[in-house]
């Protein structure tokens, strides 16, 4: 993904503001990256370079960590982040059907963002709400006992127009 000049400048500046809050040990790497993502919504390459320089490690070291952990995103998320739980209880109660419903309606795959950058879709391992399965977490709010109809209802409440277009699948 190509960043605009504006995005490069912003990510460098925001990262530089965050760095002095930490003493600069290698052990600070993950808390720093979490803070950067909290601020920017993702961890762009210029931010990784700033962090590497601050901690005295190579950018590749930072990239290894960022690509290892599920939490970190390399590209900006959508305005609304939809996380579909795929834990055991959710799976056995049709979690994959719910994930399919989101994919079908948003017309994106897991890990992608809609072209208008409104929605991003992710799967999460388990949010520990197994008694409410299947659940979808949208912007941190847990929605319990989701059905394909409820997916439509939620999208409608977000102001998205749903065209029923059977036959394409």
């Amino acid at each position: 993904m190509e960043l605009t000049d504006q995005e490069i400048t912003t990510s460098r500046e925001e990262t530089k503001k965050i760095l002095p809050q930490y003493p600069g040990r290698r052990g600070d790497l993950i808390p720093i990256l979490q803070k950067v993502q909290e601020k920017l919504g993702y961890v762009p390459a210029p931010a990784m370079e700033e962090v590497a320089a601050y901690l005295g490690i190579t950018p590749m070291d930072v990239y290894s960590v960022v690509t290892f952990y599920n939490q970190f995103r390399l590209s900006p998320p959508g305005k609304r982040q939809i996380n579909v739980c795929m834990g055991t209880a959710c799976h056995m109660r049709g979690g994959n059907i719910i994930l399919d419903s989101w994919k079908r309606r948003l017309k994106i795959d897991v890990g992608q963002v809609t072209p208008d950058r409104e929605f991003s879709l992710e799967r999460v391992a388990c949010v520990g709400c197994c008694t409410m399965a299947p659940v979808t977490v949208i912007d941190g709010e847990v929605h319990p006992k989701v059905t394909p109809t409820r997916v439509d209802g939620l999208l409608f409440s977000f102001g998205m127009k749903i065209e029923k277009e059977g036959g394409k699948h």
């Binding site: 190579t58 950018p59 590749m60 070291d61 290894s64 690509t67 290892f68």
Partner: peptide, 19 residues
């Protein structure tokens, strides 16, 4: 150099460069 390193995890783990 530190140009090469591991990225990703599981079956996706690979030797690659920054970015």
């Amino acid at each position: 150099g530190g140009v090469l390193g591991f990225a990703g995890r599981g079956f996706e783990r690979r030797v690659t460069t920054f970015g």
